[in-house]
Each structure stands twice: as C-alpha cells, then as structure tokens.
Design a protein around this nucleic acid. Structure first.
Lengths: 150, 150
DNA sequence: TCACCTAAGTTCAGTTTCTGGACGAACCAT
DNA sequence: ATGGTTCGTCCAGAAACTGAACTTAGGTGA
C-alpha cells in the first residue's frame, strides 16, 4: 500500500493520517498552533528543505486545515492560518504534547506550559467521555463496527 | 534537519513525533489498539513492506511502546503488546479518530463506534482541563515557556 | 542608479528511504 | 518428504528528502 491510498480506507485514522500523519506536517502544525504563519518562519524554525515546506503547506491548504491569506500587496505575500478544521486538531496536538511531557520530559519538567484562560490554571489535557463526562482510558472502551464501515 | 534529530529538541511534540509521527507507525498503533499483536497480522492488514513493519516494530519496542513477548516455544514466536506507555497513547489515537470522524466520515457516519463501558454509551472523546474539568478549545489556552525549555 | 535586501517559492543533482518480491530459518502436520 | 506457518532478512528499483543555488517581484539606502 502507498500512503496516498490511506485516504480511501474506511477508517478515520487512515484518512486523518493521510493528511497529518507525517513528521514534518505534525511539526508544521505545532508551529501553526504556536502562532507561526509565514513560509520563512516555518522554514527557519524547522530547518528543513524548502521543498518539503512548500509541499506540506500546499497539502494542508488543499485539505482546508490551513488557509492561505494575503497580508500585503506589492508584492503579494501570503500567510498560512489555521482554519476551524485546523483548530479542531488541537486535541490531537495536545494529546501528543502530553504524551511527550509524560514520557520524555527531563528532570526540569515540561518545555512548555499551557494555561487555561477560563480557570487561570496550568493544565494538562484529560480525555473524557462525551456522555458521562468521566475520564476515559483505553481499557474502558469497547470498539465495534459503525454505520460508516465498508 | 533530519528526523532522527527531532528526539533531541526541547519540545515534547518533536520528541513524540520522533517515535510515533510516521504514517505507518500510527497505523500500526491503530491496529495494536484494535487487538492486533502478530507480525503477520500487521503485515496483512496494512499491506505494506515487511521491511517497514520490522523496522517500526523494532523502534516501538526500543521505545517501550510495545513489548515483545513470547507466546509459544518450539519455535519461539513473539507477539507485540502495548505497554503502559503504549496505552498512554490512547488519547492521541482517539483524538485522531475523532478528527477523522468529524471531517472525513461519509453520509453513513463513523466507520467505528466506541462504547464507554462505565456508562454504556457510545461516545466521542472530549478534551478537558485537568484543573477545572471544563472542555478546552484552542483559543482558550495560553502557551508559555516552561521549566524544561532549553 | 546601483547594490543589496526580503518573502515566497522553484529547480536540480545526490542521498536516503520505501517498495515488492524472493528467500531463509525453525518448526509442525500428513 | 512435501507443504504450511510465522517471523523475519536481502536486494534492486522507485520514490521521497536534502542542501544549495536560482527566480520573481518589489523595497531600501546612498
């Protein structure tokens, strides 16, 4: 299987991974959530080939995760902003951050802190059940085939 | 930058992505959470090169995400099981599933349903604040440098 | 006017990684 | 002894990634 074919699978993970499941794409999204918007800034921060930046940004725009909007004329320059669909990826990014904080942070602690404006506290994300609002762990869940299966 | 260098960055995303931020690794984890444990099963389900399966499983074992445990002698055969560290990736996987369900599910609905055993309902994951327990969205969070920064 | 700068790409040769398919090892069943 | 199972390894060709130079379109300072 080639990874372009992932998008055609009857699996939400495969379809998401076809869009965001790539090392550099995830790093671009991290930076996007940290407020990075310009081509040069992505390139400088990540230190990777401009070719890859171009290609990944193009895919994210095509998928509606980022929007390419002009921020000046003469010459026209664009910036890349997270769309609503892009902002919906926040739980994914935070879940990855949290796993990294738990398992790869050094003595000193987490490299970044996240403050919930509503309550004013530094927090970490907790995955809860949409129905009973209790925290959920892997062992408490049963998965079965749904209506959208092949 | 090469992606092996991601692990050395003072960023939890980079460090996590160095381990799991690869298309096939994420697909392997999906299958692992669905109960797949054997080399042949991963290979058949994913339909990708055995070389890649070997390499990815090796990395996940080296990182302590999967454990290689013998399930028979003569000949010795091993299976790959999620460790506690691996199970900690459940929020990551569920966040990705949920994003796919929201943005790529067809008319019919989600390909898979998840039932929370504790309350008996089909649910989707909600990211909440560890401190005030309210749902959190991207715009409600302020990020700043933490103690583990470079 | 001329030289230099910025932002956002494009192009390209060389290197690394991935793919598909064959092959190997160690055992079991008939 | 022939074939099957499970878990790999090996290899040539294809695809992706890298680093560096180049392009476009305009702006800046002297």
């Amino acid at each position: 299987m080639k990874w372009e074919d992932l998008a055609d699978q009857p699996c939400s993970i495969a379809r998401s991974v076809a869009v965001i499941g790539d090392r550099w794409t995830l790093m671009i999204l991290r930076d996007a959530f940290l407020g990075v918007r310009r081509f040069e800034a992505f390139q400088t921060r990540l230190g990777i080939s401009r070719t890859i930046i171009t290609e990944r940004l193009k895919l994210l725009v095509a998928e509606g995760v980022l929007a390419k909007v002009p921020y000046q004329d003469r010459p026209v320059r664009h910036e890349y902003r997270l769309t609503e669909k892009g902002l919906d990826l926040y739980p994914v990014v935070m879940a990855i951050v949290n796993w990294g904080d738990r398992h790869y942070a050094g003595e000193a602690g987490a490299p970044l802190l996240h403050r919930h404006k509503a309550c004013g506290c530094d927090f970490h994300p907790v995955m809860t059940c949409s129905e009973c609002h209790a925290p959920v762990s892997a062992r408490e869940v049963e998965t079965r085939v749904g209506p959208g299966a092949a």
